[in-house]
Amino acid sequence: MQNAKPGDRPLSDPLSQDMTTPGAVISARGLSLTFQTNDGPVHALKDVSLDIKKGEFVSFIGPSGCGKTTFLRCMADLEHPTGGSITVNGVSAQEARKARAYGYVFQAAGLYPWRTIGGNIRLPLEIMGYSKADQAERVARVLELVELAGFEKKFPWQLSGGMQQRASIARALAFDADILLMDEPFGALDEIVRDHLNEQLLALWARTGKTIAFVTHSIPEAVYLSTKIVVMSPRPGRISDVIDSPLPKERPLEIRDTPEFIEIAHRVRDGLRAGHGYDD
């Protein structure tokens, strides 16, 4: 696990918090989140520290209850930590959210059934007050990016599940946020569609240079996509291993049969087992 070393390098922004690591887009320090339930407190996250650097593709993997989604929601200011600190782009998660610093992709596409695909992608742009011409240009561009050009006038129910999820990714890309937070976006899709979308996502990441935080419960998916794999374990939710992937940036699907890939997958599996084994 990386530790913050404030003062190693001069901070570019004097207002940045001391705890923030220079160059980190997302920086969590001792982050804790405890839910109060009728059965007593649940420690969704306990003392989690992590830095995500610009342009990284970081996957969070772990069994259910390990806090991976909660962690992502803390980055998005959809959950409020009860302890520790988290900064996004050097400011608090709330300020980052209000500055529209990230696009968020949920497990379900969640497209509005009463809007066309184009209308759905236009939704954030309308809310953020982009001009009509700018909206049209951006919709066309992101549809191209997720290979859905020509589907602008279709309604969501006319598209397959995989296409709907691509449209929801396009919606998150439409307003040029540098960070993409993805919460098991392909979890509900079948293996073949998933492979295809993984390939497309990597291509998209290479083209846009975005910083991506990606929650998944699939080991091959995490290893295939990521430059960094964060293995988490439950009760309390914490990070049990952080693996920097030695795989090259250029990754055909066949890379999954190479010894390097298998070795990383093995390490992830070990990490999951170690974190999981002690109480069930």
Partner: peptide, 11 residues
């Protein structure tokens, strides 16, 4: 989820 989505847009 729908409400969270709009929240991420700062609506």
């Amino acid at each position: 989820m729908q409400l969270d989505l709009l929240r991420t847009y700062g609506a």
